[in-house]
Nucleic acid binder design. Structure first.
Lengths: 249, 249
DNA sequence: ATTCGTAAGTGGGACAGTACCCCTATTGTG
DNA sequence: CACAATAGGGGTACTGTCCCACTTACGAAT
């Protein structure tokens, strides 16, 4: 099974364990929101200290798993999300894992990548010992700045997964505040998908999904007020039976 | 970011690294095929040696990442797949990762789970130093035997992912030999989905997907011979615009 | 007070895709 | 010649997109 063949046979399992140097283990996060009419991702600046790889470069927030504090990978991801945004994310999903010899100069490493959707919390807080953080708009499948490690690849995978799931799920509700209008929700879909969406078809779809409830308030503005809605069960994701607009294109 | 707060500040990144004990890192595989009219998964028997957890229990095949031999996680998965089935899998996909304090008695561990689809290779080879292996039919979301570690959960996730993707992709072609008839392919869909599929609708769907080519041979039998087909591009997976049978049920 | 502009929200009809059912033809075996 | 399974065609019904038009509700301008 997992026995190194070039070495003499060892008699105890404990001794065999020692034959396998352990990879570095990290968790990274792709945290998305909709800000200023664009899909944006939260990036942090790598520390500028001796021995740190990619000093000063932008990267996805994340870091080493702390086997003392983190009971499991998701708890680790939630901890880091909280540290970065002070937001208890309504939506957190594992994207996958990337591991290999070359991706970190400090050695063979494996990272577990999660992606989170949150409502725009405003400018990221740059506390005293908090590293510099900033929202970057998504352009294509990534951002315009260079990213540390293989984070360009991780981010691209996250963007692709997000876009593809938005085609057939209700995910974008978690990019908005708890309460929103149908038009705002439609804009969120359009921003993620990067194309316009038919109003009638969109509203039919949402109605058929039956995952929103009216809240007894209105969004007032210059024109006719809009009904406010929110998801019935926070965290719930509805799968539609068809992809979004098969007729287009 | 990932700095333990209870300890004195260290001056070098290398020293900080040492503060993070590394989790055990493994790769596990859910290898599926269609055998004897059922969806089946390959299991191996855990070694019966001192110090080994869950001795003699059935488990998903897998083992420690070998950072000397495996350039990355997928290579590690392919190596283990090859060792177990001597099959170069046409389809291998990462399912996700599970990590936590409790899942392995040897300590905090993280496993990277892949699932593979292969054509029925017959009985698994029980070589000299190869552990006992066997195909088990899937019942519900798992198998009837108890599994080691948290493998029941991993397998359930794999089965759910497989079933759900079969609703809108061409995946089952990789559960069959390279060449097959449309009826055999339909049976494969039905076996995975666990429900009958309309013949006309099925054939329309396959034709619309346009991923099969005729091979100039026929499957002869007791009746009218059937046209043999195979996928045009090995490894390709087609996504249909709708889930399989929204009208039913 | 009336009019105007704008965005919200509703509704109908054409159209495409396809699930579903039924029927027929084909082509081997016994 | 009957049988069995493959292959394929036709027709209906239903779903959901897409397009267009219309009404509603508010603030602002006149």
């Amino acid at each position: 099974m997992a026995k190194p063949k070039s070495k003499p046979k060892l008699s105890t399992a404990a001794a065999r364990l020692a034959d396998f140097p352990r990879p570095l283990t990290t968790v990274d996060l792709a945290i998305f929101t909709v800000r200023e009419g664009a899909l944006q991702v939260l990036l942090v600046k790598r520390p500028d200290e001796p021995g740190e790889p990619h000093p000063g470069a932008w990267a996805l927030p994340g870091g080493f798993v702390d086997i003392g504090r983190d009971r499991d990978l998701e708890a680790c991801a939630r901890r880091k999300l909280k540290e970065k945004t002070s937001v208890a994310s309504p939506y957190l999903e594992q994207l996958g894992s990337w591991g290999g010899k070359e991706r970190d100069p400090r050695g063979w490493s494996a990272t577990h990548v999660y992606f989170a959707l949150i409502a725009d919390p405003g400018e990221p807080l740059a506390g005293a010992n908090a590293p510099a953080a900033a929202w970057y708009p998504i352009a294509g499948e990534g951002v315009k700045v260079k990213l540390a490690f293989d984070h360009r690849e991780l981010l691209a995978a996250a963007v692709i997964r997000l876009r593809s799931k938005v085609e057939y799920t209700s995910l974008p509700v978690y990019l908005l505040p708890r309460e929103f209008t149908l038009t705002e929700l439609q804009r969120a879909f359009e921003i993620v998908l990067g194309r316009p969406v038919e109003k009638s078809a969109f509203r039919d779809r949402i109605k058929a999904g039956d995952f929103l409830e009216e809240v007894p308030r209105l969004r007032t503005g210059q024109q006719r007020p809009a009904q406010l809605y929110r998801v019935k069960k926070l965290g719930e994701v509805v799968f539609f039976p068809r992809t979004f607009s098969p007729r287009k294109e």
